[in-house]
Design a protein around this nucleic acid. Structure first.
Length: 195
DNA sequence: GCCAGGATGTTCT
DNA sequence: GAACATCCTGGCA
């Protein structure tokens, strides 16, 4: 698994990959690119701070941050080292460890267990203490592994979710078509009345 | 099904 | 002091 290329090339390759945390295994179905200091939507845009320190590190590290006072979100650092690019893991399908994931998200339907970036970390049991984990180290409790290859025709792209400003023409968000686990918060499906 | 509003605390200005 | 890469609940249809 090579994460050292430009983030927009790496992001779609994460689709179908497996994210493993102890007994829970997730097949990634949705990811979002953040292109380092050049990207106004990226946490790294304003430069290096204690919080974003990890993003400036090596490709393959986990960047985990806390937001809205109650949610954790997880990124994979990518790109040439020092570019501070990362991919936000937005959604996945739980393929192993269902019992553990269900117990962390009581009441959620299976398809909703990891449907959204904060739900994903909760279902996996990931929090800030795992920030900086080397996801490519087979000995890490939290790691990334290759999955079954996905049909490239199923990969869709679109604008980012929840990020204000700049509707740049770059495709930022990647997901697998026909996957019920993809996050529902899509501006690409604007409420619009027929006629 | 859809939409509006509140929770809650870290980070940066 | 404001913003924030979100999610859940409760209202209405």
């Amino acid at each position: 698994m090579d994460l050292t290329g430009p983030v927009q090339q790496v992001a779609p390759t994460l689709l179908g990959a497996l994210l493993v945390h102890h007994e829970v295994v997730l097949r990634l179905t949705e990811a979002e690119a953040y292109a380092g200091q050049a990207d106004p939507g990226s946490h790294a845009f304003r430069g290096r701070t204690p919080r974003t320190e990890i993003m400036f590190g090596r490709a393959g590290l986990a960047y985990v941050y806390f937001t809205y006072g109650m949610h954790w979100c997880m990124n994979v650092v990518t790109g040439p080292d020092g570019t501070a690019s990362a991919v936000l893991l937005r959604a996945g399908e739980v393929v192993a460890g269902l019992d553990a994931a269900r117990s962390r998200r009581p009441g959620a339907k299976d398809r909703d267990l990891a449907r959204g970036p904060a739900r994903l970390t909760k279902a996996l049991g990931v929090d800030g203490s795992l920030g900086g984990t080397d996801l490519l180290d087979p000995r890490s409790p939290l790691r990334l592994e290759p999955g079954e290859p996905v049909d490239p025709a199923l990969i869709r792209t679109g604008p980012r979710v929840g990020v204000a400003g700049l509707g740049a023409p770059t495709p930022w968000r990647y997901w697998l078509e026909d996957e019920p686990t993809v996050s529902p918060y899509r501006p690409a499906v604007p409420r619009r009345r027929p006629g």
